[in-house]
Design a protein around this nucleic acid. Structure first.
Lengths: 148, 148
DNA sequence: GGCATAATTGAGAATGAATATCAATCACAA
DNA sequence: TTGTGATTGATATTCATTCTCAATTATGCC
C-alpha cells in the first residue's frame, strides 16, 4: 500500500470516516495525475475503466482529499475549480491567460523565500499557498487582446 | 465625474465599448464598497434603489471592471467569487487561518515587484493577481493547532 | 441636429457544476 | 457475527452564472 493511502486512511480514521474501496479508487486516480485536474476530469478518467464509481462519490471524495492535505485547490477557470497533488510534486505557481485559457506554470525561489519571510513576520504557520496571476499571454497580446 | 469613471470610460472607449448609464450605476456602487463583495451583493444593493438594472447587466459589467483594472477577483468562498476595489484601496494579499478562519491582509512591495518581473520574463501582461497563504495564525498555533 | 450601426439592455430561459436526497449497502469496532 | 452509522449510486435539485433575442441606445460621422 502506498504511503498516500496510509496517509488518507489515517486521516479518515481520525475523523471517524471509512476507508472504502471507492475512496481508494479516487485517491489512486488522483495520484496518477501529473498536472491539474478538476472534478470532471477525475470522474471521466475513473469512469473509463470503472463504471461503478459515481460522479457523486468523486465530488464527495475531493474535499476529503483536500482536508487530508493530499491535494490543494489551485485555480478557478471557466467556472471550474482545479486541484493538484501536493506530495511528490514541486510547488509552482500559475499564470492564467484570460484570452485563450492557457495555464503557464512557474516557480521562483525568491518568491517562496519572500512568502516564508512574510509568514514569519506575522508569526503565521504556512500550510500552503496559491498564487494566480491573471492576464494575457504573449500570443494573445500579439493578437491584440488585453490592450489598455 | 470621478476619476474612476474616467478610467472606466477610457477603458471602454479603447475597447470600442459603450459607456452606458447602467455601467455607471454599477461602477458607482462598486466604488461604495469598502470590503469584498460578490456579484449578488452588488446586484442586491443596486436593486434596492434601482429596479431597472438587471442581474444580467451586473454580471456583464463585472468582467469589464476586472479587465479595466478597477476591481480584482479575490477569494472564492462557498462557490461564490468575491471581488474588491483596486484603486483607492491599496492592493493586498491574504492569509487565511485554517484554525479560526481569520483573514489577515498584508502587503509587500518586493512581492509585487517580483511578480512584475516574472511576468516580464514570460512576456505575460498581468491584469491582476491573487496570493492566498493558508495556514495557522499565531493564536491558533499557540493553541496547538497546525502541528506536524 | 439627425442617421447609421453595432453595442447594450432586460427578461426570462438555459446551462451546468456542485450538492442534496434516499433507500440499499457496506466498513468496522465490539 | 452483528449492530450501527457512514457511504454509495442514481437521480433530482439547487442556484450562480451565462445565453438568447427583440427592443433600445450610445457614439461616430455627416
Amino acid at each position: 500500500m502506498r504511503q498516500e493511502e496510509d496517509e488518507f486512511g489515517n486521516y479518515l480514521k481520525k475523523q471517524g470516516l471509512k476507508f472504502t474501496p471507492e475512496r481508494v479508487v479516487v485517491l489512486d486516480k488522483v495520484l496518477s495525475f501529473k498536472k491539474h485536474f478538476n472534478a470532471d476530469d477525475l470522474y471521466e478518467s475513473i469512469h473509463k475503466y470503472n463504471k461503478k464509481i459515481s460522479r457523486a462519490t468523486v465530488y464527495r471524495t475531493i474535499p476529503l482529499l483536500v482536508e487530508s492535505g493530499l491535494i490543494i485547490e489551485t485555480l478557478r477557470c471557466q467556472g471550474r475549480v482545479s486541484y493538484e497533488r501536493v506530495i511528490g510534486f514541486e510547488h509552482h505557481d500559475h499564470m492564467v491567460c484570460l484570452g485563450c485559457g492557457k495555464i503557464i506554470e512557474f516557480k521562483d525561489d525568491r518568491l517562496e523565500e519572500l512568502q516564508a519571510e512574510i509568514c514569519e513576520r506575522y508569526e503565521f504557520k504556512q500550510v500552503e499557498h496559491r498564487l494566480g496571476i491573471r492576464g494575457y499571454c504573449k500570443e494573445c497580446v500579439a493578437k491584440g487582446l488585453g490592450k489598455g
